[in-house]
Write a protein that binds this DNA or RNA. Structure first.
Lengths: 228, 228
DNA sequence: AGTAGTCTACCGACCGCCCGGTAGGTTCGC
DNA sequence: GCGAACCTACCGGGCGGTCGGTAGACTACT
């Protein structure tokens, strides 16, 4: 069920298969509305109307409100896994890996923040088992960042920073983008991603002259890896 | 706490300003519950039960659910004004001022995050006019931080950072604390505040050797003002 | 001292509304 | 004629909010 739904969601702007498209449209609409109004403030009717169905018609596609939320969150976590964690895992140098994580996560948010934002804001709307599932995956992500910070520390590029606090702080910085970034604003998505990535790297790296193991720490632009 | 307050209040019937105490207790309870479950997922009955009243009894003290939310948010903004903005305004050196802002805001969150977290998470629960009021005050806060970053840039301590993006990013880092910090966790509140403050300063200051207008930019530890 | 009135602080019962969800069709392409 | 894709009509229940009370402390007057 969940895997199927996720596959449906992933079929973004498709041509073929009618049912899958419809389902994907429903999930996308629901994600947008949940994002805008919040899960509890959104009624099944709101979603049905947004996709041009009645409430009963909508129930042909979904099992219930909570399942819908869980499916959206599962999709968001899959997105994070595929677009951020997996690519970053293939980067061996810790600093480059951190840049990959931040830049890719930030980019995901500037592109479409709905699902990823619901992922962090509506956890209490889930059933306990589902919530445990999502929280576990989130914790893995934070641990992944914390491990990267620990590796940077072992290289001597970071001094006296608690990796866990560092990881949480970076995540907070990134997630917050969805609250202030507007696609039609002064800065475009790429500029925002670059700015935030630079701040993130700068936040964890040691400043200045001291104890820097080799490696002429780049102080200017971020890395190349910010796009694929 | 609640039971104690109620017992004390009941025992001291006839004492001076019981009404204000009761009202404060209601706001505090409501803030805690809104924080835990979210505004929309919290019923008036939940709050009434938490303070040992019936729903009808609660309405003797409040005008409605939305007014209650607005009152809590107003209180949170007042707290921010008094404990963060005003003290920081009296610090003239921009870097020290930034440290004051971050440290004081972070400290407020580690002490009691309920109201301050509601302030950012439940905006859509407000009436449009109330929301505009709160958003305006929030924007003033971000502008205050952005101005401080701009001042740092004018001193040459910050290069090529957009002050607005910088301000938002720092705010995101700080606000996120309420999502992961536990008073009974590995680190105590002061340690977390210190860590986050160091990261924030490090995130915006220039690293290393280049193009620094005069001014021996401190590249080692941050400043003293991180605690009072 | 007694008692009538007043006010604070609450409660039980109720209202209309809308919620998530369902039963039982109906339409329509194949 | 059959199943996929929807619909209308409805259900029980909980919601925010209101109404009409009332116990009891306090005051005022006789």
């Amino acid at each position: 069920m969940t895997a199927l739904d996720n596959a449906a969601l992933r079929a973004a702007t498709g041509a073929a298969n009618g049912e899958q498209d419809r389902r994907a449209e429903i999930y996308r609409s629901a994600a947008r509305i949940f994002h805008r109004k919040g899960y509890h403030a959104t009624s099944i009717n709101d979603i049905a109307a947004a996709v041009g169905l009645t409430k009963a018609g909508l129930y042909y596609y979904i099992k219930g409100k909570q399942d819908l939320l869980f499916a959206i969150m599962g999709f968001a976590m899959d997105q994070l896994d595929e677009q951020v964690i997996e690519p970053a895992r293939r980067v061996e140098d810790p600093q480059a890996r951190l840049e990959t994580i931040v830049a890719r996560h930030a980019r995901l948010i500037t592109q479409d923040s709905s699902a990823l934002t619901i992922l962090v804001n509506e956890l209490e709307g889930l059933l306990p088992d589902d919530r445990a599932d999502i929280i576990g995956r989130q914790r893995d992500y934070v641990d992944f960042i914390a491990d990267t910070l620990a590796a940077l520390r072992d290289e001597g590029k970071v001094l006296g920073l608690d990796p866990t606090v560092g990881a949480f702080s970076l995540v907070g910085m990134i997630l917050w983008i969805s609250r202030w970034y507007r696609a039609d604003g002064r800065l475009d998505g790429d500029e925002v991603v670059a700015e935030v990535t630079r701040m993130a790297i700068s936040a964890v790296l040691n400043r200045g002259e001291d104890s820097n193991a080799g490696n002429p720490a780049r102080t200017g632009q971020p890395a190349k890896e910010t796009r694929e």
